[in-house]
Design a binder for these strands. Structure first.
Lengths: 142, 142
DNA sequence: TTACATGCAAACTGTTTGCAAATAT
DNA sequence: ATATTTGCAAACAGTTTGCATGTAA
């Protein structure tokens, strides 16, 4: 029965730990994003999702953009560009790969440790590998 | 001495084979793109590059966009999104991977056959792998 | 001479920003 | 009381499009 309070407290703590003030808007975003399931979405997706809640309280699109940017800088989200044109956010901030069904616009995570990439190239002098992005793109079987 | 004519003829043939009329603008683009070296560039990059030729003749930015789109649909170019926000074109249309130095904004090709990806996941029912995009992102060594 | 390509400007999408009002500390 | 955050509208980047003019076949 005190469930809601506890979840809300967890979000508040998460924000504070990240150095972000727990505003109503940020808590709304947390409430939607951090429910245990990994999510992939654009700013527009999140805006639509939060707007259609009948509660009446909402947030502006500009705040969505600012919030997502802040969360990303604070390490609460990661970003991904599958599309060029729009930026995808991912609640999974660990290093992982993706599989993308362009038709269904469906993006899922793949564990790095399930896959192995052999034959990595030498990187230029003074450089090192930051990370490796892998996107497996699928299409309907002919 | 007839070198220039031959190259120009090759571009003309390439366009015609792709079902595209060899206009002055498309030939200019070919002249810059297909010189044997693989190139990675944005529409803006190409526009700047072709604009600064002192010849005087030039092309509009809209034509650059239309031309690049047409070339891509005709299979003369491939595209790539490293950045989200802008679309990169690649003169290498075979299946290959990339290595990207975000600092220097430098993109290079990697041979698919030099690398091997093990542990590919099962794809959803009725789907098959279209292609796999790999981008190795490098950064200065700490 | 006809279908297609070009160039310009205007439209459009995704994202950022300036600033006054609201809110967290 | 002070520093941040919000929301709006305006600005911005990258890209596409409508339409009159120009060009290839």
């Amino acid at each position: 029965m005190s469930e809601a309070v506890n979840i809300s407290d967890a979000h508040k703590a998460r924000l504070q730990a990240a150095g972000l003030r727990p505003t109503r808007q940020r808590l709304m975003v947390c409430g939607y994003l951090f429910d245990g399931k990994d999510k992939h979405f654009t700013a527009e997706d999140l805006f639509r999702e939060l707007s259609r809640k009948d509660g009446g309280d909402s947030l502006s699109l500009a705040t969505i953009y600012n919030t997502l940017k802040g969360f990303t800088e604070a390490g609460l989200l990661s970003t991904l560009s599958v599309d060029s044109g729009k930026l995808y956010y991912d609640t999974n901030t660990s290093h992982h790969y993706h599989i993308y069904d362009a038709g269904g616009r469906l993006l899922s995570d793949l564990e790095v440790q399930a896959m192995e990439i052999k034959g990595l190239p030498d990187v230029p002098e003074g450089q090192e590998i930051d990370r490796i992005d892998v996107i497996i793109r699928t299409k309907p079987r002919d």
